[in-house]
Simulated assay, not measured.
Amino acid sequence: PSLALTSGKALCPLVESYKYILLPLTYSSVFVLGLLLNGAMLRLSCRRASWTCTTIYLVNLAVADLLYLFSLPLLVVNYLLRDTWPFGELLCKLVRFLFYANLYGGILLLTCISIHRFLGICYPIRSLPYRTRRLAAAGTATSWALVFPQLLPTFIYARTGVIDNRTVCYDMTSPENLGSYFPYGVALTASGFLFPFLVILACYCLIIRSLTRHAGDANPAGSAARAKSIRTILLVCGLFAVCLLPFHITRSVYLFVRVYRVADCQLLQRWSLLYKIWRPLVSLNSCINPLLYFLSATPSVACQDYCAKV
C-alpha cells in the first residue's frame, strides 16, 4: 500500500496497486482510439467544400480532444513507473490543465451544439439569422474565453512533490493547498459542469417535445428522421450523465473527505478508489464526441444550406 497525505501531519495507507494496471491500459486505449476518431473527423471536415455551423463546433471539439490526447502518453509512463513523474513541473501543470480544458471546453461546445439544434428544430425559420457561421465562430471563441480564465487556478495549483523519495505529479494540488482548492473545485463543478448540463437537458427536452408533437406524421421519411433524432438525443444525455456526472460527484466527495474527514482512512480509501476509477473513464469523452456528433448527427438541412452562404 501507498501512503496518502490527508493533512499536514496525518498519513493514511491507501491500497492503489490497481491503478498501475487500470490507468495505463485505459489511457493507452483512449489515446489510440481517440487519435483515430478525431483525426478522421478533422480530415473529413477539412475535405468539405464549405463548413456548416455544426462543423465549426465539431472541429473545435476535435482540436480540444487532440490536445488532451497528446498528453496521455506522459500519464501512461507515469503510472507504468508506479506514480513516478520524470517530466518536470511545467509538464505536470500542462497535463493537468489540458485535462480540465478539454473537459470543460468540450462541455461548453456541446452546450453550443445543443442550443443550435434546439433553435433549428423548434424555431427553424425564426432562428435562421442566429444560425450563421459567423455566430458559430463567435460562440466557440466565447466558450474558450470563458474556459481559460476559469482554469488558470488549475495551472497554478498543479505541482510536483516528493513522496517516498520519488517525484510525483499531484492530481489536483499538494496536500497543504487542498483547503483552498476545495471551494475552487466546487465552484468549477457548478459553473463548468452543472449549469451547462442543465442547459443541455432543457434544450433536449424541448426538442423531444417538439419532435413528438409530429409523431403522427404520415411521411415515413419524416418519422424515421424524428425517431433517429430522439434516439441520438437520449444517447447524448445518457452518455453525458454516465461519463461526467459520476466523475464530478466522486471528485467533489473525495475532495471533501480529503479536507474535512482527514482521520477517516476507510472513508478516504473508498472515495479515492471511486474517484480514481472514474477519472480515466471521463477521458472516454474524447472518443465518444466524434462518434456522437459526426457519425450520428442529424443536422437541419435548412441550417446547412443557410450557413454555407453566410
Rank of each mutant, 00 (worst) to 15 (best):
P220A: 12
I230P: 09
F182M: 04
A218E: 15
C112Y: 03
L23M: 07
R133G: 07
L128R: 09
L188V: 10
N219R: 12
F70Y: 11
D217V: 13
F148D: 00
S45F: 07
I56F: 12
F99M: 09
L66N: 07
N60K: 07
L128P: 01
A218R: 14
R166G: 03
I56N: 10
K276A: 11
G106S: 14
A297Q: 12
Q304P: 00
S191I: 07
G106D: 04
S29R: 04
P86M: 08
S272V: 01
R47Q: 15
C92L: 03
W271M: 14
P124Y: 04
F182A: 04
L198W: 08
L152R: 01
A224Y: 08
G185H: 13
R279T: 12
T212S: 14
P124C: 03
Q269E: 15
L239R: 10
S180W: 07
H248T: 10
S114M: 07
M172V: 06
L11V: 14
T298D: 07
I163S: 02
F247Y: 15
T54P: 01
N285C: 12
C303I: 14
Y275S: 05
L284R: 05
R47W: 02
I200W: 01
V199A: 14
Y68A: 06
L5M: 11
L25M: 11
P246S: 12
G88P: 06
A10C: 00
N78G: 00
W51S: 13
L67M: 15
S191C: 09
R166T: 11
H214R: 15
I208E: 11
Y20F: 15
H248P: 01
I200N: 04
V32R: 02
G192C: 02
S143R: 00
S17K: 14
L135Q: 10
A215V: 10
T111A: 07
A158E: 02
P299K: 01
V162G: 00
A297I: 08
I230L: 11
L273W: 08
I163N: 02
V186S: 02
A187H: 00
R47A: 10
L58M: 14
G106C: 08
N102H: 09
L33K: 03
S210V: 05
W85G: 06
Y260L: 05
R270D: 08
V236P: 02
S296E: 05
L146M: 09
P124M: 02
R213D: 12
V259N: 10
K309M: 11
S252A: 14
L135F: 08
G139V: 01
L14S: 05
V262A: 15
S283N: 13
A64P: 00
Y27W: 11
L33I: 15
R270V: 09
Y57R: 09
P149C: 03
L35I: 08
N285P: 00
L3A: 05
R126T: 07
L267C: 09
D65P: 00
S7C: 08
L198E: 06
